[in-house]
Design a protein around this nucleic acid. Structure first.
Length: 554
RNA sequence: GGGCCCGUAGCUCAGCCUGGUAGAGCGGCGGGCUUUUAACCCGUAGGUCCCGGGUUCAAAUCCCGGCGGGCCCGCCA
């Protein structure tokens, strides 16, 4: 909509509002507290909805079918739909007002008795109704919806009204956020709220958003992580803290990255990284059980990136079933077609080519069992297994050559530890489809983690991968102020050498450690990516309420 | 930063290759219709073909540049 169309919308309002009130105040039966939930009404026989009494509902009219002196309207509220049945016999002149004035998109209140139509559909025989809000813009039929991604992201409210799938995804998001908080509360965590505007940005490696604090005449930053403040709370005496934190990284947008995203960080005093792995797997499992009622989810995996290994280890009938599900899903769950033996053979011969042809991208739904415990694999062993690199003996030249093949540039100079992690990320990460903890990273890659109790060249760090995505990252936290000081110094040196994303040294944090931080475990969970897993979405924007789009009034 | 694709009515799209009157369905508006559910039937309005430039007698169509978007690669430890 351009400015001129907004003008038309306003003119439409002025013209229409002279006839009747388009946006009345509500009172009495129309109040939220007096309404029956459509979700409960359609589930029947609930304690609060009895057949013999009238129900009172409100929602948006999403379809109208007018047959002269009889009309049907689909009323939708929070994703649930019920049919209104209106007749001239019952409503007299207010029936004519309805057919003359009520349009798709309007928000309506109605009351009447439940009954079933000849076709058997549960409906409300409306005895009274009122218009609560007028839609001045003509809405689409939901079965066409809107598909243009730009329009869907810019006008998310339209997307949510018209595309049920989008509404359900956000509903899942909010339920997951709720479940995370509930689980953390149950386990005795305090939900902390630490500063979003910070004088020094720390706790991760990323470009910050800069801002200016007028009161101090100083340049500050939007946080890239809450880590260093949550750990200060451990110093201050809290044992279990977490924060569902919006964090901000001034970097590119792609299908798994967004400048503003949500991270759940949690810290436990007198714990280590093993405890944090347990926390992660149990949290994820409980979300699965709550949300899908099972520990098994289906997610569309990029076979081109992760390799055909996942397919080869499944039985043929499982592959056939998943392929059928994939085709069905990509058809918008409309046409369900069987997969014949020859289809399956063709698919197994060239899965990537087959998928490109059939669904346009090389993705196959696979089943992921989120039931703990998840296997733990040492990073260095993965490098041995996948790349044949012995971390103790492999010459640096060999590592550099492998990195060059993937066009990876190490900013801030070569570091063997960082090179090893980069190799893992570029050669192995995408193939980690089933839940797995990768553990024990080279020391130089993680300045905030505590050295490994058995091998000082490593740190006690883990990352959790599911569906080829990094979902969580945790450590046994560094609580030795001297070692933290040295690690920050090294980071500053890397910054000097051009690694703009090396961490900024936070010497006040070192001072906090000097006061004494108990040994602790910490974790950060990428909430948006977790939501992607549970909603089957392959783009982070799809699971964000209002993803960023360039400024433009359209 | 590099590559591929897209931008036409409110929405979903056809037309573009091969230049020659701006199209369909849905939606809107008007009329009809008492058990429909993608209701149906009749009628009707609706366009900066993303923007700018070029080629041409003639550009939605061909060429160049830009804007916006999607996907892939790189970067994001």
């Amino acid at each position: 909509m351009g400015l001129s169309e907004l003008g038309q919308c306003i003119e439409h309002y002025v013209a229409e509002s002279s006839k009747y009130r388009l946006f009345p105040y509500i009172s009495g039966d129309e109040k939220y507290s007096e309404l029956d939930s459509i979700a409960e009404v359609i589930s029947e026989n609930t304690p609060t909805v009895r057949w013999e009494r009238e129900v009172r509902v409100a929602g948006r009219v999403m379809a109208l079918r007018i047959h002269g002196a009889l009309a049907f309207a689909d009323l939708v509220n929070e994703g649930y739909r019920i049919q209104l049945y209106l007749t001239k016999d019952a409503l007299k002149e207010s029936y004519d007002w309805f057919t003359d004035n009520v349009r798709r998109g309007d928000i309506l209140w109605a009351k009447g008795k439940l009954f079933r139509t000849r076709r058997g559909e549960l409906s409300i025989n409306v005895s009274q109704y009122s218009l609560l809000a007028k839609s001045l813009i003509a809405l689409q039929h939901t079965w066409i919806g809107i598909e243009d991604p730009e329009l869907r992201y810019r006008k998310r409210y339209l997307d949510l009204v018209l595309n049920k799938e989008s509404f359900e995804v956000l509903k899942a998001r909010f339920n997951i956020l709720k479940e995370i908080r509930l689980r953390m509360y149950q386990q005795g965590f305090y939900e902390a709220d630490t500063p979003i505007i910070q004088p020094i940005y720390g706790g991760a490696a990323a470009n910050p958003f800069k801002t200016f604090v007028n009161a101090f005449s100083e340049e500050w930053y939007l946080r890239i992580a809450p880590e260093l403040y949550l750990k200060r709370l451990l110093v201050g005496g809290f044992n279990k803290v977490f924060e569902v934190a919006k964090v901000f990284r001034n970097e590119d947008i792609d299908v798994t990255h967004h400048p503003e995203f949500t991270m759940m960080e949690a810290y436990i005093a007198y714990a280590n990284y093993e405890d944090m792995m347990e926390l992660a797997e149990e949290l994820i499992h409980s979300i699965a059980v709550k949300l899908v009622g099972s520990s098994i989810i289906r997610y569309p995996i990029d076979i081109e990136k992760c390799g055909r290994g996942v397919i080869d280890e499944m039985d043929d009938d499982v592959v056939a079933e998943l392929l059928e599900y994939t085709l069905w899903s990509y058809s918008g769950f409309r046409k369900k077609q069987g997969v014949s033996k020859s289809d399956l053979d063709e698919f197994k011969k060239d899965p990537v080519g087959y998928l490109y042809k059939a669904v346009g991208e090389p993705r196959l739904y696979v089943e992921l069992d989120l039931k703990p415990p998840y296997p733990k694999v040492k990073l260095l062993e993965l490098l041995k297994e996948h790349l044949g690199i012995d971390p103790d003996t492999a010459p640096d030249e060999h590592l550099i050559k492998l990195l060059e093949e993937k066009q990876v540039v190490l900013k801030g100079g070569y570091s063997r530890d960082i090179a090893l992690v980069k190799l893992f990320e570029h050669y192995i990460e995408k193939s980690l489809v089933k839940p797995v903890f990768v553990i024990d990273y080279p020391k130089g890659s993680s300045p905030l983690a505590k050295p490994h109790r058995a091998d000082p060249r490593l740190v006690e760090r883990f990352e959790l991968f599911i569906g080829g995505m990094e979902i969580a990252n945790g450590y046994t936290e560094q609580n030795n102020p001297y070692e933290q000081y040295i690690a920050f110094r090294d980071q500053e040196e890397r910054r000097r050498l051009g690694d703009v994303e090396a961490q900024e040294a936070d010497y006040d944090f070192v001072e906090a450690l000097c006061v004494g931080m108990p040994p602790a475990g910490g974790i950060g969970i990428g909430v948006d990516r977790l939501i992607m897993l549970f909603t089957g979405k392959t783009s982070i924007k799809e699971v964000m309420p209002f993803p960023m789009v360039k400024k433009r009034f359209k």
